[in-house]
Simulated scan of single mutants.
Amino acid sequence: METSDHPAAPAPGAATASGAPAPAPAPARRDAEATKAAIVRAARHLMARHAHADITLKAVAERAGVSAPLILKYFGNKDALFARIMSFEADAEALLDAPLPVLGHHMVHHLLTGQAEHGADPILRIVFAPLHREQGDTLRGNFRTQVVRRLGERLEGPDAGLRAELAVGTLLGLGVMYGIARGPHLRGTPVAEITERYAPTVQAFLTPP
């Protein structure tokens, strides 16, 4: 058997010959989930500014700081990536994840913290549906089914579907003013204060009359 002229590297954390701890290994590259999340954020950013037909994988890749082939590796193709972007399933699960008596408070706080801390809104991309022609119809259909209808199925009392649409419409209005119009008074007010003021308006549609 051949032997190496170089000593084996010490295990991470093990002492070297001098008695000093071995240097820690270099940080690993972004894991797959972090990379996928960066790609999704980039695609959402572009979808809010350009028609679906005008967005290229190269543009998404440049925005995400990755290569276009990496997008193909994780999502397959542009259509598969945008099918993911046009789904509200995971967003709705987080948005509606609270008991009904405090759901209005949760929805308002979740929307505002997403905008203020992450620059991302769980439902606001529905307002860009007219940009995307046929894909806009998919976006609208997903929104109605995955967000509004899902909320309506949780509500008790009469007119549940109408009340769900009113609640979500009220929430969207806040999202537009905060995230798109960027109202200076709204953005200069703590999220907790806006939530306390605005949540009762949303909750009024959720609580049975």
Rank of each mutant, 00 (worst) to 15 (best):
L124P: 03
H132K: 07
V60A: 14
M177H: 13
G169K: 03
P7L: 06
E93T: 11
D79Y: 03
Q203L: 06
Y178F: 12
R44M: 15
G173M: 11
M1I: 13
A14G: 03
L70P: 02
T207A: 12
R163Y: 05
V147C: 06
R84P: 00
A51S: 09
H45P: 04
A98D: 02
D79F: 04
G104F: 01
A98Q: 00
A53E: 14
L96Q: 04
R41A: 15
A61V: 14
L139P: 04
L95Q: 02
I71R: 09
L206N: 03
Y178S: 10
V108P: 01
Y178V: 07
I123E: 00
L155G: 05
P99T: 02
P25W: 04
P200K: 04
P209L: 05
M177K: 03
A22D: 04
V60K: 09
A17D: 07
P122L: 00
S4D: 06
A15F: 10
L57P: 10
L139V: 06
I85M: 04
V40K: 02
L186P: 04
V102A: 09
D121E: 03
V102I: 08
E153F: 00
P209M: 02
H106V: 07
I180D: 07
L166T: 00
L186C: 12
N77W: 10
K78M: 15
A28R: 15
I126A: 02
A38Q: 10
K73M: 15
G114E: 02
M177G: 12
R150S: 11
G188K: 09
D137M: 13
A51C: 12
E196A: 14
A34T: 12
P122Y: 01
K58N: 15
L139H: 04
G19K: 08
A83C: 07
V147H: 03
F75I: 01
G76D: 09
V147M: 04
A53K: 09
A8Q: 10
S67I: 11
A20G: 05
L112S: 00
H110A: 04
I39Y: 05
V40I: 11
R29F: 08
S4F: 11
P21D: 13
L112F: 05
A43F: 08
A11C: 03
F128A: 12
R163S: 08
G65D: 15
G136A: 11
G175H: 01
R182I: 06
L155P: 05
L57W: 11
I194R: 08
A22P: 00
